[in-house]
Each structure stands twice: as structure tokens, then as C-alpha cells.
């Protein structure tokens, strides 16, 4: 599914060269539920950007769904992101002046699906996250947990290969965090590959595999007994 080999990435800041990723080797199979952990400066965000095809890398290789992702034009990268990756963000990143339905349908808009059809599909996914009744509401009228569920519906709508969640519970209280994790576990149970970046131990324990990053390399990997997130 996802295969990273000897991946290097450095940033040039003025005269200094900052070597952020120093040879990452990572393989994630279809249907895995993985968490990536690491303190700030560990290269976690950079790795996430590269996995999400938001940024390029210097050397090594990154295959997603057997396709080499390297040095793409912005346009092509956008098309790959649209097709292969569903993003869930810490701050939800819903578009404030669009209602829940329109937000969920947005990735389909960029696939050129007509309004009627994409709204129909969006309703289906809203139902899946239990918010069909909220389809006309603006993000500002919803709670954090609801917003994140809308965002998850949006991530799922294009039926991507992987769901990439960047600190999905970072802005939520514990109870709501567990609700969101429950939803992500459910999605994973349906067969979707889910990668969660987090710095919270309890969240990482709700995944099947923990990858710990430190100073640009994978320090260690753990395979915990997955804690089922309880809906309280």
C-alpha cells in the first residue's frame, strides 16, 4: 500500500541546511491502523507532508498504491491527493461559509462530479458519521466533535486509499476525542488504511501499530494491544 525507502529531506534556511528526515524506511499494508508519534522537531510533520503529497523529498522513494510519488507538478499532485488521500486535520479545516453538505462534497467538486450527484453522495457519508440532520448547518454552528466528524466524512467521500489524520483529537476534549477515535477505528474496521499523527499516548494506544520518530529517523515501532475507543 505505502512503501517508503531510505527517504531523505532537508530544508535550506539561508546558509544552513537542516536535515530533517535522515533515511526513513516504512511500509504500511492495506487495512492497517497506524499512529506516528514524536516530539516536535522529530520530522513528524515533514513525513506527514510527504505522505500526503503536499511536499517533495530529496532522495529515496515513496510508493503509494504501487505508484511512485516523486517530483510531481502541483497540478498532478493535486489530482493524486484528491484520488488517493483523505485528510483529517487538527483544526478541522472546514470552509466557514459553506454548510456541512457542501464541505463534505468539496473533494467531488474537484473531480468534476455534478452538484446533484455529489450532494447525494455527501448525504450518504453524512449519514455514516451520524450528522445527516446537520447538513444545512454552517461549521460555526457545530461543536468541535461534530466538525471533526464532518471533516472525516469529507475525507472519506472520494474513497481514498489512505486516511491521513494529523492530530485529529488535538483540539478536542477527552470524551469527544474518544468518539472521533471510535469513528476512525470503525472506518479502519471497514478496511480502510488509517494513519494518525499524534503526540497523545492514549490516542496512539487506540491504534494497532505505533511508529516513534526521533531526530529524523524511526526510533522504534510498537504493536500494542489496540484499546477500543469507548463512546462515553
Amino acid at each position: 500500500m505505502l512503501n517508503i525507502k531510505n527517504l531523505h529531506k532537508s530544508y535550506i534556511t539561508g546558509a544552513n541546511k537542516l536535515h530533517v528526515l535522515k533515511g526513513i524506511n516504512l511500509e504500511i499494508a492495506e487495512g492497517e491502523l497506524v499512529s506516528i508519534m514524536g516530539s516536535s522537531g522529530s520530522g513528524k510533520s515533514t513525513l506527514l507532508n510527504i505522505i500526503g503529497i503536499l511536499d517533495n523529498y530529496d532522495s529515496g522513494s515513496y510508493h503509494l498504491n504501487k505508484e511512485l510519488i516523486k517530483n510531481m507538478s502541483e497540478t498532478k499532485a493535486a489530482q493524486y491527493r484528491n484520488r488517493l488521500i483523505g485528510f483529517v486535520f487538527q483544526s478541522f479545516n472546514l470552509i466557514p461559509f459553506k454548510n456541512a453538505l457542501e464541505n463534505v462534497a468539496l473533494p467531488l467538486y474537484y473531480q468534476g462530479v455534478n452538484r446533484k450527484k455529489r450532494n447525494l453522495i455527501a448525504e450518504e457519508y453524512l449519514e455514516k458519521v451520524g450528522l445527516l440532520n446537520w447538513k444545512e448547518h454552517l461549521p460555526s454552528e457545530m461543536s468541535g466533535g461534530q466538525k471533526q466528524r464532518i471533516a472525516i466524512a469529507r475525507a472519506l467521500i472520494s474513497n481514498p486509499e489512505i486516511i491521513l489524520a494529523d492530530e485529529p483529537t488535538g483540539a478536542l476534549d477527552t470524551a469527544t476525542s474518544y468518539e472521533v477515535m471510535h469513528l476512525l477505528q470503525e472506518i479502519n474496521k471497514d478496511g480502510k488504511t488509517v494513519i494518525i499523527v499524534t503526540h497523545e499516548n492514549d490516542i496512539s494506544l487506540m491504534t494497532k501499530r505505533i511508529i516513534r520518530l526521533k531526530d529524523g529517523i524511526i526510533e522504534k515501532e510498537e504493536f500494542p494491544e489496540m484499546v477500543m475507543a469507548q463512546t462515553l
Binding site: 500526503g52 503536499l54 502541483e74 497540478t75 493535486a78 489530482q79 491527493r81 484528491n82 484520488r83 485528510f87 486535520f89 479545516n93 470552509i95 466557514p96 468539496l106 473533494p107 474537484y110 473531480q111 469529507r154 472520494s158
Partner: peptide, 14 residues
């Protein structure tokens, strides 16, 4: 907003 749209698959032309 533009960043989000791009992450979701909007091309620069879009």
C-alpha cells in the same frame, strides 16, 4: 481556505 482546497485536490488552475 485555498490551502485546504488544494489539499482536497484543487489544482492551481481551479
Amino acid at each position: 481556505e485555498f490551502g485546504i482546497r488544494k489539499a482536497l485536490g484543487a489544482t492551481p488552475m481551479n
